[in-house]
């Protein structure tokens, strides 16, 4: 039931956002369509449902978004700086990163976030190992890799997915 409600709410919010109106006709039509789609797609759409709707988790989700947006802007400036530098200061390589997260969805979010943050691109995930193309390999030491690439994200993600 909670999974169904989550799917329904998600679709309905997107519908209202895309039509950008609170005209009753649109809102009701959106509710009906969301209801129909959610009734047969909720099983594949989410495994978690409304589990995240507790104040603590919402706080950490917002915190995650802020951490993520700051990293995103930093990443863009970092890449821009490397691109315009005449010397092209890069030292690329693929490193192995061991995550402490166990949940599949958490791992996917971590991998996506790593891809969008400074100088790193996730090539593959196998078990708890992430293979990451790093445009400026500063160290081959696993502890340094962990700290430089994903520690900020992992600390917040652990709170959300526990």
């Amino acid at each position: 039931m909670s999974r169904f409600l989550f799917t329904f709410g998600f679709f309905w919010i997107i519908w209202i956002g895309l039509t950008s109106t609170f005209n009753p006709q649109e809102v009701i039509a959106g509710a009906v369509v969301s209801l129909i789609i959610a009734s047969f797609s909720y099983k594949t759409f989410t495994d978690y449902g409304l589990k995240f709707l507790t104040p603590k988790k919402i706080y950490y989700i917002v915190k995650y978004l802020i951490v993520f947006l700051i990293a995103l802007v930093k990443a863009n400036f970092d890449v821009a700086r490397r691109v315009v530098d005449p010397k092209l200061p890069i030292n690329p390589g693929i490193v192995e990163y061991t995550t402490q997260l166990t949940d599949n969805a958490a791992k996917v979010i971590l991998a996506d976030s790593i891809t969008l943050t400074p100088g790193t691109l996730t090539v593959d995930i196998i078990g708890d190992k992430l293979y990451i193309h790093w445009i400026d390999v500063v160290s081959k030491d696993p502890a340094v890799i962990y700290r430089e690439i994903g520690e900020n994200f992992e600390n917040v993600l652990k709170e959300i997915f526990q």
Binding site: L72, A75, N76, V79, A80, V83, I90, P92, I94, T115, L116, G119, L121, V123, H133, I135
Partner: peptide, 12 residues
């Protein structure tokens, strides 16, 4: 791979 870095990050 480096091109993907430039192509995906800057364009986000």
């Amino acid at each position: 791979f480096s091109r993907l870095q430039a192509g995906t990050k800057a364009t986000t």
